[in-house]
């Protein structure tokens, strides 16, 4: 399959510290890919570099076209959408306003309603909470809002940075289940996760990062025990 998202030799630094060292990876159409690694491995930096939130060198292309550097709004316009670490919801605004801002680039009321209905089908609780201030939602609901808001942009590829962070296992399952459903519908997804077993259950391929470098590409089917996974982390 031809890749939809292609990252070539992406490097990024915070001041003088190199946070990302020449990462190359690709995601094929309809794929569900995980990016794994311990805390501080550079997973979030990788997502931020792909979206152009931080200065970087290297190239990111989506469906054959190179994405401009440091222009997150262009990435969104092209269909590359990130649910950031910590969700990034607009806490003092209502759920409805958050969803509206997700569709910021859309100027079509009918299409807006279609997208919102789809989000409500996936997360019925957001419909009930529509008039509520986003900051007053539970952690799980906030994550649903973050994913729902990203879907309002009608992504052609969805990147998620640790959506399970700080959530109860049951809520995590619910959200990951929704992601699996979206992926079955044809949406390519990149899931950043610290808890590897969680991600490997869903994904067809996984990249392993360690101290800013890509150290392995894993086929989840070959991982049958925790020991094998641990070997990757320790090697």
């Amino acid at each position: 399959m031809t890749p939809v998202l292609e990252v070539r030799q992406l490097s990024a630094r915070y001041g003088r510290v190199e946070a990302l060292h020449e990462i190359s990876l690709s995601v094929a159409d309809g794929e569900f890919v995980a990016v794994l690694g311990p805390n501080g491995a550079g997973k979030s930096t990788l997502m931020r570099a792909i979206m152009g939130l931080i200065a970087n060198s290297g190239a990111v292309s989506f469906r054959g076209a190179v994405l401009p550097r440091q222009s997150p709004d262009t990435c969104v316009a092209r269909g590359v959408v990130l649910v950031p670490e910590g969700r990034g919801i607009f806490a003092p605004m209502t759920v409805a306003e958050n969803l509206e801002l997700g569709a910021y680039l859309l100027n079509d009321a009918d299409e807006f309603e279609r997208r919102r209905t789809r989000v409500f089908d996936l997360f019925p609780r957001l419909r009930e909470r529509l008039g509520q201030i986003a900051g007053s939602l539970s952690g799980g609901e906030q994550q649903m809002l973050a994913v729902g808001r990203a879907l309002m942009a009608n992504p052609k590829i969805l990147l998620l940075d640790e959506p399970s962070l700080g959530l109860a296992p049951k809520v995590t399952d619910e959200i990951l289940g929704t992601l699996a459903l979206l992926n079955k519908g044809g949406l390519p997804i990149v899931l950043v996760e610290q808890k590897a077993p969680l991600a490997l259950r869903l994904t067809s391929r996984a990249y392993l990062l360690s101290v800013g470098r890509l150290v392995a590409e894993i086929d989840p089917r070959t991982i049958t025990s925790h020991d094998e996974l641990a070997r990757y982390y320790l090697s």
């Binding site: 979206m51 939130l53 997150p72 709004d73 969104v76 316009a77 959408v81 990130l82 950031p84 990034g88 919801i89 607009f90 806490a91 003092p92 605004m93 306003e97 509206e100 801002l101 997700g102 910021y104 680039l105 808001r149 942009a153």
Partner: peptide, 18 residues
């Protein structure tokens, strides 16, 4: 609304295409 979003979280605002 986009200006308010920038006030609350500029980075998240840019991730909405603003």
């Amino acid at each position: 609304k986009a200006m308010r979003a920038c006030a609350f979280n500029r980075e998240a605002a840019s991730l909405q295409g603003i």
